[in-house]
């Protein structure tokens, strides 16, 4: 196979020596075909489940009345007449548009401001714990909520926050923070805090693993040297720990910026009800309701396309800003 090509390995990459001419007309062996067959399994899968839906995006430019049921949506998706940007215009002039965008962005920016830095702080505090045993116990316990579904976790919180029987209300009344029970689940004022706090409780331990791993990779000589130089705990965190995990932070920051329009729909859905719809309706739930609930396929596709275009723009610009500020990006 490679008699006339010298091959040397550098960092696991195989490089060919440029001074020797490659034999271009190598024959395909049986193993080449097998490998290609194995790899092309992914192409077949993605063609159906990733690229076919991409083609389906042309549905966003079709007329709505032609695609009212599933069958005609599939047929007219390919053949029906174009309606131009009609669907986008409908969405942008929808009276609910402002509200939905405010909810989507508001919830996500809050998550970015609170739930993004929280695992970092948690990981740093955890690395400062003096007892290894205690550290392990804390980790085990805080992982656990990640393993149970949003349905169950939501169910737990619906009973904790209950108006009559929930412990939160009773506790606050007893302590004297509030005079009488507050209907936390019934109104829309508390929807955002509920979402933020529940995702904090469910995701904090899990989200911190990656940073704990990054911190445990910092060589201990750095800390020892700093100690000799008279650094206290705060100095060590500020000048060693944080700069060392900065690349990890940047990576996850960019990734979460591109997810700014993605609310976890299975999270929101558990807590959404008719009373809090004004604060809880986000793009994802809107698409689900209009598309699958009311069979407005073309309209919902257009809203979905609107969402993914903005996400890609956010990803690219987030990456650009991070590259300018810190010299690091994901591509």
């Amino acid at each position: 196979m490679s008699e006339n090509v010298t091959v040397k390995r550098i960092n696991g990459e195989i490089l060919t020596d440029p001074s020797i001419k490659l034999n271009k007309r190598r024959t395909w062996t049986k193993n080449d075909w097998i490998l290609l067959l194995m790899a092309s399994l992914s192409i077949v899968f993605l063609a159906v489940f990733a690229y076919a839906p991409l083609y389906g995006l042309i549905l966003a430019f079709k007329k709505d009345h032609e695609t009212k049921n599933i069958l005609s949506a599939i047929v007219y998706g390919s053949w029906g007449s174009y309606g131009g940007l009609e669907q986008f215009r409908t969405f942008l002039t929808d009276p609910e548009f402002g509200n939905i965008m405010a909810n989507t962005l508001g919830l996500n920016i809050l998550q970015l401001m609170i739930n993004f830095p929280a695992p970092i702080v948690f990981a740093i505090l955890m690395s400062e714990l003096i007892s290894d045993k205690f550290k392990k116990t804390v980790q085990t316990i805080t992982f656990f909520p990640h393993f149970i579904s949003w349905v169950i976790f939501g169910g737990l919180f619906l009973s904790l926050l209950d108006y009559d029987t929930g412990i939160v209300n009773t506790l606050f009344v007893k302590v004297g923070l509030i005079k009488e029970p507050v209907d936390i689940l019934g109104g829309e004022d508390y929807f955002w805090p509920i979402i933020i706090i529940t995702s904090l409780l469910k995701g904090l331990g899990w989200g911190s693993i990656i940073y704990v791993a990054a911190i445990s990779g910092i060589p201990s000589e750095l800390y020892e040297a700093a100690k000799i130089d008279g650094a206290n705990r705060w100095h060590k965190i500020r000048y060693i720990t944080v700069p060392s995990i900065a690349p990890t932070i940047t990576l996850f920051f960019i990734l979460s910026i591109s997810g700014l329009l993605n609310n976890g729909i299975d999270h929101i859905w558990v807590f959404q009800n008719a009373n809090n719809i004004g604060r809880s309706e986000v793009l994802d739930t809107f698409i689900y309701k209009y598309g699958l609930g009311m069979s407005n396929y073309a309209y919902a596709t257009a809203v979905g396309l609107f969402k993914s275009v903005i996400s890609v723009i956010l990803l690219v610009s987030g990456n650009f800003v991070c590259k300018k500020l810190s010299g690091r990006g994901i591509y």
């Binding site: 192409i43 839906p53 991409l54 995006l57 596709t301 979905g304 993914s308 990803l315």
Partner: peptide, 21 residues
Amino acid sequence: IYWINLLTMFFSGGLIPYFLV
């Protein structure tokens, strides 16, 4: 093959086209 795979991480058709497929 690698790029065909990687691209799908950034672009998706969204809920409705996926449902139709």
